[in-house]
Amino acid sequence: MKLQQRLPLPLPVSCGFRSSAHLPHTLQGIAEAKLGCEEFVAKLLDRRWTLPSPDTRIQQIVSAPKRIEEEDGLLKDKSWFNIPNPLLGDKITDKSGPDSSFYVIRDDLLHPLINGNKVRKLDAVLPLLEDHSVTDVVTCGGCQSAHAAAVAVSCAERGLRSHLLLRGEQPDILTGYNLISTMYGNVKYVPRSVYANREETLKTYASSVAGGNGCVLSLSDILEAPLTEQIVSSSHPISTSMDDQRSLGNFSRKVVIMNEGAGDSIALLGVIRLVHHLSQSHLLGKEKAMKFVVDAGTGTTAVGLGLGAIYFGCSPGKSLL
């Protein structure tokens, strides 16, 4: 299975998630990443998930030539047909040509209100929040952010409070994801000049939500620290030395900051889980060359697809779309 995307994908030297400044872009880096990584990732995927199963519906769109008659003669064109239950696994063939059909991963059907890849990125995140008794989630996005709406709905379903910092001004009429965010979460509109420094804006707002007896954490904090002890920050500085770590249970509100678009390392796991599922021999497999076309904002979904392709023995494409 080959992955192609618009931007080069950073590849890790080891199995851990590292910053892009230290990631190689060579085929040697790919080979090093594969060694022992499947077992490592299998352990990462052995956790509690939001989705009971990584399964998703796969549909095939097939083109067929048709003739359209116009005043100046006959013109050839194409029509498209949807096959809801296509042949997969060993029955996938290339006989019809590379441009005659494509597959659609229908993750948009996973939830009635949450856009497809948003569900995947929250797949591993939400159980982590529940396990650490988080009470509030602060995140940000554009006025019509699908990510903000997904966080609002998901938190409401689990009794968590969501706080959404949306870029720009409140529209006169609430529609789409903006309406959903307002219905399910606590929305605050942030001027574009302030939103430009969203990291600091998120921290400041999260501290106000936490109050005097609350703590503020990032997803990285709760991912890396033990379940019973956390490194916390708040409006009143708390020592972060190992001897002075405070138990999360001592705080009345536990506020977690989630990056824009769920651009956090833990969010990659849900996408990697999807690749693991799709790479099974009865679905897309690992042997057939597949080009994945994905829209990317923060790039989290694209990175997760690329890492999954590497970890589970799928070869990433060398050329770019």
Rank of each mutant, 00 (worst) to 15 (best):
L3M: 13
Q5G: 07
R6P: 00
P8E: 09
P12N: 08
S14E: 15
C15N: 15
G16I: 05
F17A: 10
F17L: 11
S20V: 14
H22W: 09
P24E: 05
P24D: 10
H25F: 12
Q28Y: 05
G29K: 02
A33W: 03
K34H: 06
K34R: 15
L35V: 15
C37K: 00
V41K: 02
A42Y: 00
K43L: 09
L44K: 15
R47A: 13
R47M: 11
L51I: 07
L51V: 06
P52Q: 14
P52C: 06
S63I: 04
A64I: 02
K66W: 02
I68M: 09
E69K: 06
E69V: 15
E69C: 08
L75A: 11
K78R: 13
W80S: 03
L88N: 07
K91T: 01
K95Y: 04
S100H: 08
S101E: 10
V104T: 10
I105M: 06
L109C: 13
L109H: 10
L109N: 10
H111N: 12
P112W: 11
I114H: 13
G116A: 14
G116H: 12
N117L: 09
V119Y: 03
L122H: 10
A124M: 10
L126R: 12
P127C: 04
S133Q: 12
T135A: 06
V138K: 03
C140A: 13
G141C: 08
G141H: 03
H147W: 11
A149K: 12
A149V: 01
A149T: 00
A150H: 04
E157N: 07
L160V: 13
L160C: 10
R161T: 06
Q170V: 09
S181P: 13
V187C: 11
K188E: 08
K188Y: 05
Y189S: 12
V190G: 02
V190D: 00
V190L: 04
V190C: 09
P191L: 04
N197L: 11
R198E: 06
E200V: 14
K203Y: 07
T204Y: 01
V209H: 06
A210Q: 03
A210H: 08
G211F: 09
G214R: 00
G214T: 01
C215Q: 08
D221C: 13
L223Q: 13
L223E: 03
L227S: 15
L227F: 07
P237T: 02
I238F: 13
I238E: 11
S239P: 11
S241H: 14
S241K: 11
M242S: 14
D244Q: 15
D244M: 12
F251N: 07
R253H: 15
V255P: 01
V256W: 01
M258K: 04
A267R: 10
L268W: 07
L269C: 02
L269H: 13
V271G: 04
I272S: 08
R273V: 04
L274I: 05
S279L: 13
L284H: 02
L284D: 06
G285Q: 08
K286I: 04
K286C: 08
K288G: 10
A289V: 05
A289N: 14
F292H: 09
V293S: 06
V293N: 10
V294M: 04
G299W: 00
V303S: 07
L305R: 05
G306Y: 03
G308V: 01
A309Q: 05
I310M: 12
F312L: 07
F312H: 12
G313L: 11
S315P: 00
K318N: 07
K318P: 00
S319W: 00
L320M: 14
L321Y: 14
